[in-house]
Each structure stands twice: as C-alpha cells, then as structure tokens.
Amino acid sequence: MTTFETFADTGRKAVSSRRHKAVSSRRQLRLPSLSRDVLLPYLLPAVLVLVWQTGSSIGWISDRIMPSPAAVLAAFWEAASSGALANDIAVSGARALAGLIVGGSIGFLLGLANGVSKLSEQLTDTTLQMLRTIPHLALIPLVILWFGIGEEAKLFLTSLGVLFPIYLNTYHGVRNVDRDLLEMGRIYGMSGWSLFRKVIFPGALPSIFVGLRYGLGIMWLTLIVSESIAASSGIGHMANNAREFMMTDVVVLALLIYAALGKLADVVARALERRALAWNPVYQK
C-alpha cells in the first residue's frame, strides 16, 4: 500500500533534485558577476555625473546655472570639514525622525482602531478622509501663525504629512486580512489580543510597510519645504541660505544630500520589510 506513496515521493524528489541542480548551476554562472548586481543600478547616475562634468568643463553648462560636480564636491568638502554639514544633517535627521515617530504612531494607531472597530471607523474615518485631501503644505501660513518658526511648526507639518499614508495603508491592511484566516483563528480559540497578534497584525504588515515607505518620502518632502521657509539650521536652511548668496554649488549639494538621505531611509525600510516579511514568497530568495 505504501509502494504507491514511495514511488510518488521518489519521483518528486528526483524532480526537485534535478531542479535544484539547474538552479545551482545557474547560480554558479552568475556568481562571478555578483558585483554586477550591486553596481549596475549606479551605472546611470555615474554616466549622468560624467556628462555633467564634461559639460561644465567645456563651458557648455554655465556655472551660474549649474555648478560642476567638482565644485559640488569641493563645497561638500568645505562644509564637511568645518563640521557644519554634519550638524545640519543631524538636525534635519532628528526632525525627520521625530515627525515620523509622532505622525507614524498616530496614523498607525488610528488605522488599527478603525480597521478593527466599526464604531471608531464611523467616528473618525470621514473626518480623516476630509483632512487628507487638504495639501498639508497649504497649512504653512497658518502653522507659522500658530507655532512661529520654531521646531513645533516643522514637527507638526512633518507629522501631518506622514500620518495619512500610514493611516490609510494600516487601515486598508487590517480591513483586508483574509476573512477565512480570521474565522480559522476564532475556531481555534483566538480572540482579542492573540487574534490581533497572530492574525490581524501580521496580515496587515505588508500593507503597513507600503504606508511606511510612502510616508518616508512625504517626510523628507515636508521637511525640505518647511526648512527652507523657516529654519536657522538643517539642510533646508543650508540650501536657502546658499540661494541668497548665489552659491549654486551648495544648493546642489543640499539636493544631493536629500537624495542620499531619502535613499538611506528607503534602504532601511526595505531591510526591515525583508526581515519582517520573510514568510512572504515575494521576499524569499
């Protein structure tokens, strides 16, 4: 009686080992070019910089409009060696993080509450959807009147910007947890906290990460704008200050630093995602 199973099993094993061999030989072929995977995405930026430098060198691009990469590098060196740059990055980073934590937690908690509780949803969702449609940067005049140009204004704006994408995606994630899994959880005696911890939260997590990554983008955007309008430190202030003195190299440097910080935040979020969602076939290698 078991013969059948045994045959089926050996067959399956043979197939899987053959497939395994095919995969491993493909890996071996690709192994020497592993660095290719890392370097290839940076090929295009490198070419752009090269074209840009050549254009500046032959006088094709006026340095009044756009400084050469070498000039930007020099500006970077100057700012970095004086310690001003590190200070500005630290200040901007702290603002960004504070906004993310405040806005992110509010959005996350509201998303959870409204995803789980019908009453909470009825009470707050419509209001949140209305507020969401207001471009939060349009509040800047009002925010300056309320908070002046201190840290509160920037924290308020960044938090507000981060709040909505995280709220929407958390809410959506919780609402879209597989009904069958919820029923299964209830059959097996899960309720309240254990149902949340074992079924609802992990089920909503992929969507929450989408919200986080989207929120990170908005976080930097808001911070740049609010720092260039009213600040006495930070990257935005550095750029705005440089504009007044026509220092295009510093302005471009500030832009590049924003790009690097944005990329860094995304890399961290992705790493977290890969770790937390290891069960998901999309993230399995």
């Binding site: 069958d180 899994l181 097996y188 899960m190 074992k198 992990p202 997590l205 069960w279 998901n280």
Partner: peptide, 18 residues
C-alpha cells in the same frame, strides 16, 4: 487556511488553542 507568517509547526500549534 494556514497562517502564512507561521512555520508549519506553529500553524499546527495554533490548533491547541491559547
């Protein structure tokens, strides 16, 4: 109806209740 974020044994363990 397995929980995709639990490995096979933890899925089975869920059957024991909390």
């Amino acid at each position: 109806r397995l929980l995709p974020w639990f490995d096979a044994a933890d899925n089975v363990a869920a059957g024991l209740g909390p």
